[in-house]
Each structure stands twice: as C-alpha cells, then as structure tokens.
Design a binder for these strands. Structure first.
Lengths: 176, 176
DNA sequence: CCAACCATGTAAGCTGTTACATGATTGA
DNA sequence: TCAATCATGTAACAGCTTACATGGTTGG
C-alpha cells in the first residue's frame, strides 16, 4: 500500500520541510507538479494513510490551526529506497513524469552520486525505448502502418530523444 | 460513463475493423499503444459496458469461438465527437498520450481537415504549455528553485518543444 | 458585511490492477 | 501427451474524482 505516485510526492515534499495538507495542495496547484493532482479528496486520505503506515507524523500543534506533518525515519528510508531504484524501460515508457519526480527529490540527498546513477540508468532506459520504437517502425510486419500511426510513433520518438539529450546535458551539469 | 481512455481506445480500434477482446489485448501487447493497458480484467468489462451503452455490438457468431464486436452508428458519433475536440493546454500537460491516441484514430476520418484542425490546436496548446513553464522558470518568486527542480522543468520544456516541432513537420506532411 | 480564501475532511461512484478460474486448440 | 497459447471471464481491492460539508479568518 502507498506505492502510489501521490504518496511518494507527498512524502518527498514533506521531507523537504514539514507541511500541512493545504500547503501541499498549493504546491500542486501552483507548480508544474500539478500532474499529481490536488483535490482534497485525494490528498487528505493519502496523508492519513501515510501516518497510519508510520511514514509521516503530525507535528505538535504549536499554534495556529495548521496541522503540519514531518517525515519519520522509516519514511526517510522508504523514500530513499524508492529514489535509488534504477530507472527502467517500462517506467520511461509509461510514466516518465514519475521518473522525473524521483529525479527532483534526489535534491534532498546529501551526495550527488544517486543523481548521477539516476541519470545513467535513465539514459539506458530511454535508449532501450528508442530502440523499441525504431524496431517497430522498421519491422516488415508493420509496413501497413498508416501515416497517422507512423506519425504518432514518431512523436514518441522525438519525445524520447529529447529526454535523452536532456539527461546528457544534465549529467554534464553535475560533472563540474 | 465510458469517457475513459481505454474506452475510446477500444472504440477506435473496433471502428477500424471488428475485433475480439483477445485481438484487442494483442494490439496493446504488441504495439506502442501498450500504454493503454492490456489486462483482461480491464478490457472485458470495458467492452461489456460499451455494448450496454450501445456503442458496440457483438457480431453474429459466424464461426469459430471468437466473439467479435463492431461499432454502432451511435458509437461512431461518440468517437467522432471525441476526436474532433480541440486539443487543450491541460490535455497536453496531463495526458499527451491520449491526445496522440486521438491523432492516430483521425486516420479513420475521410477528410484530412480534422487532422489539420487537430495539429493546429495541438500546436497552440503546446505553445501555451511552453509559455507557462518558461514563465514559471523566470518568475522572480522562484529564484530559490533548486538545480534539480529547474532541470526537471527543463526536461518538460524539451519534451514540449519536441512535440511542437513534430506537429509542425506533421502539418507539412498533410499540406501536400 | 460579504466575498474570498484558508483549512480539513467525508461519501459515492467509477476505473483499473492483480489474481484467480476455466476450457479449447495447436504444435512439438 | 504436455506445454503454450487462444479466449473469456469474475472477484477483491485500492486509488482517484467529484461533489458535498463545515467552519475560521482576512480584506475591501
């Protein structure tokens, strides 16, 4: 349970600094992280589950009605193991956005090594995906591919090539 | 009901030619359309719902155990209205893959006009999205943006720019 | 004073996933 | 004959969305 994108997004944001449910919603509403929803009906239950799972704890109610949460040692462990997983081909194929969420949260890591590891595995995953798509386009079985279908696949190809170039240039930024 | 990606994917594939549930699964398993799942637990119930909604009908069981479906006039109307919707900014932001599914199915249209309309609105939607991301990066409120966060946004930007170039070159292909 | 926003939640409904279950047919 | 694949389904479970509900605070 809680192996969901939203769960990890909340965990990562709270790890940066203790936040309230409302503050978390605002992040989703006002940043490009908006892909990970923002409706109260998803966030509050998810927070409750994270608390029940022992990954978050409510801060002592110092003052002001705000109900803030902080991450627990167990939560830290959980998110770290999530962040340190190598990027797979299916992850880039089905949910690059989640991969990039992982990349963003690697900023909370003391060392840059995990970031470099991420970029390395991200590159190979993307390369695999590019190969698959090119093989598909060149497969003699698929000569009947309509122009629309071919263009749709080419769109995917362009997207993955852009991801690849990004990863290479990002790697250069961290080499320094 | 049935305003779901999978529902439309099934509708579009059956529109091309009558197919069985198993044949549809194979499409998801063997083509880049795999993003739209393939588990029997989602496809068979979805087909049943499409039949109940009057958008699909079971073909007469000519022979062979296969249970094929064909699209009804109402189904044709439904999918056409879905395909002809202009692409919006939020669609490219949250689900470009669905937008590209729509593009692919525009091949079933007699005229190329809907395809050109799609490409036009797709371009403006992508441009809007690019503007948003660039504004976000340049917003003085966000000077505290970490390197990771900035790079994550830049990844998004590269992706959308690739989409834009694709749409422009696709448009050229249909001009001829 | 009233609107807008802060802030937290619940409930119904739908979709999708995983896992299970079944039986026919084909090829080695 | 035995495994793989064809072929169709069901059931439990979990997640998200929409919509509703509530109450406090701030600013014009």
């Amino acid at each position: 349970m809680q192996h969901t994108a939203l769960g990890y997004a909340l965990l990562g944001l709270v790890q940066e600094e203790p936040r309230s449910g409302y503050a978390l919603r605002k992040v989703f509403e006002t940043t490009p992280m908006g892909t990970f929803s923002s409706s109260p009906g998803s966030i509050y239950p998810a927070l409750k589950k994270l608390v029940k799972a022992g990954m978050l704890e409510q801060c002592l109610p110092d003052m002001g009605g705000k109900k803030r949460f902080h991450i627990t040692p167990d939560g830290e462990r959980q998110i770290k193991s999530w962040l340190h997983q190598p990027v797979t081909k299916t992850e880039v194929a089905n949910s690059v956005d989640i991969a990039l969420l992982r990349f963003a949260f690697l900023q909370n890591d003391k060392s840059t090594q995990p970031t470099l590891n991420f970029l390395t595995s991200f590159q190979s995953a993307v390369r695999e995906q590019i190969d698959s798509l090119e093989t598909y386009l060149n497969d003699p079985d698929n000569t009947s591919l309509s122009r629309h279908a071919r263009l749709a696949v080419e769109n995917g190809l362009r997207g993955f090539k852009a991801h690849l170039e990004w990863a290479i240039s990002a790697e250069r930024e961290f080499d320094a």
